[in-house]
Design a protein around this nucleic acid. Sequence first.
DNA 1: TGATCCTCTTTCCTATAGGATTCACCGATA
DNA 2: TATCGGTGAATCCTATAGGAAAGAGGATCA
Lengths: 229, 229
Amino acid sequence: MPAKTGKPPVISRQVLADHVYQEVLVALMDGRLEAGRGISIDGLARDLDVSPTPVREALARLEATGMVRRVALKGYRVAPLFSSEDLAELMDARLVIEPVNALRACERRTPELNQALEQSITDLKNAPRGASFAEFRDYWEADERFHQLIAENAGNQFILSAFNSLGGQIQRFRFFSGLGVTDAECAIEEHAAILQAFAAGNPALAQEAMVAHLTGVKKRALLDVVEHA
Amino acid sequence: MPAKTGKPPVISRQVLADHVYQEVLVALMDGRLEAGRGISIDGLARDLDVSPTPVREALARLEATGMVRRVALKGYRVAPLFSSEDLAELMDARLVIEPVNALRACERRTPELNQALEQSITDLKNAPRGASFAEFRDYWEADERFHQLIAENAGNQFILSAFNSLGGQIQRFRFFSGLGVTDAECAIEEHAAILQAFAAGNPALAQEAMVAHLTGVKKRALLDVVEHA
DNA sequence: TGATCCTCTTTCCTATAGGATTCACCGATA
DNA sequence: TATCGGTGAATCCTATAGGAAAGAGGATCA
C-alpha cells in the first residue's frame, strides 16, 4: 500500500493505536487539547485520518494514565489541569515512593547505572529551556529519565508500576506548561548530589538526597505559582 | 421502542465493553483462564456472543491492571502466575505505601470511616472460607474493602492511584487460588488492631499496626507456599 | 412572552467484512 | 533421515456501515 512513494514499507506494519496514543499524548502536553474539553472519537479519527476503532483503543489505554477521563455513554474528556493542591499531593506521593527507590537502587548499584545517571545529568545541563513543549522536551526527558532509571533499578516491579502510575512527570509538565524551567540549576545540583551518594555507595545518603530533592522541587514549584498568580 | 416486552428499558443501554471486562475478570480469578495462555480476541468475542470491538476495548483497559499482557501484532496473553519472589516483592511494595496510608487516614479519621472499617471486619468474620472463588469471594471482598477504605481516606489521590495500580488484592487472590484461606484468624486480629489505633486516635500506632499486619501476611503466605510445595 | 414539543445534528457504540501476517502442518528433495 | 518450501487456517488489525441516544435549535401554542 505505501508503494506509492517508492519508499520501502519499513514500519508499514505498525499498530495504528500506538500511533494515535503518541499523537494524543503530544497534543495533550502541547496544550492543543485544553483541559476539560471533550474528545470526540469520530472527530479525532477524522483528524488523524484513521478509523474510530484504533482511536477507541488508544483512549482506553490513555485513561489509565489519568490524562483523559471516560464517562460511559458520554465519551472522553481531557482531565482538568493541576491545581496547587494537586501538585502538593503529587509531590507528597513521590516523597513516599521515590526515596525508597533511591535507597534500594543504591544498594543494588552497578557501574552501568551510575554511568546512565551521569549521562542524564549531562543531558539535563545541555538541554535548552524553552517555554514551548518542543523546546522544553529534551530537558523534561532527561529529568524524567533520571527518576525512571532509579525506579527501574530498585528491584521491585510493583513499586515500579506504582511509580509509573503516578504519571508524575507527564502530569507535572502539564502543570508547568507556560511557566518554563525556573529551577534548572537547583535540580541539576540535587540530581548530582544523589548521584554522588550512589558513587559513594551510601544508600541512606541517597535516600536523604532524594527527599531533599523532591522537597525542593515541591517548594520551588509552589513558589512559582504564587509569583505568577 | 421497548414496549415489546412491557418491561422498562432498565439497563438496555449498557456498554458491552464493561460487561466483557467484568466477565474476563471473573474468568481470570476463577482460574478458567490459565496463566500464560493466549487470549484470542475473535474467540473471546464468539464465546461472549459479541463483536471483537468491545472485547478489544475491554482488554486494553484490563492490560493496565497487569492481569493480561499485550504484545503488539501478537495479541494478548494471561499474565503469568505469581511466584514466591513476586509475592514477596508485592508485599514489600505494599509495605512502602500502606503504612503511610494508615498514618494519614488515622489523622483524618471520621466516625463514618471507623464504622465502615468495623463493618468490613465484621463481614470478614462472617464470610465463608471456601476454596473456590465463588465461596471465597465475600472474604476477599471484605479484606480488600478494608485496605481500600484506608487508601481512599488517606487524602492523596495519587497515592490512591498508586495503591490501585498494584492490583494487589486481585493479584494476591490469583496467587492463593487453590490454597484457600489459611490465615483468617490472624488477619482478622490484625485488622482489629489497626481499627483500635484508629479508634484511639493514634496515627503512629496505626502505622505500626499496618506494618505488622502486612509483615504477617507476607510471612504466613510464604510459609503456606513452602508447606504446599 | 414564555414554555413545550419536535426535529435535526452530533456522537457514541456495536456489528460485519476484508486485508495482512504468523504459525503449524505436510510433502518433497538432498 | 533431516531440511526446506508451500499451503492452509487462525489471528490480528483496520475500515465501513448502521442503530440508538443525547443535546441544540427553532417553531408552535397557551
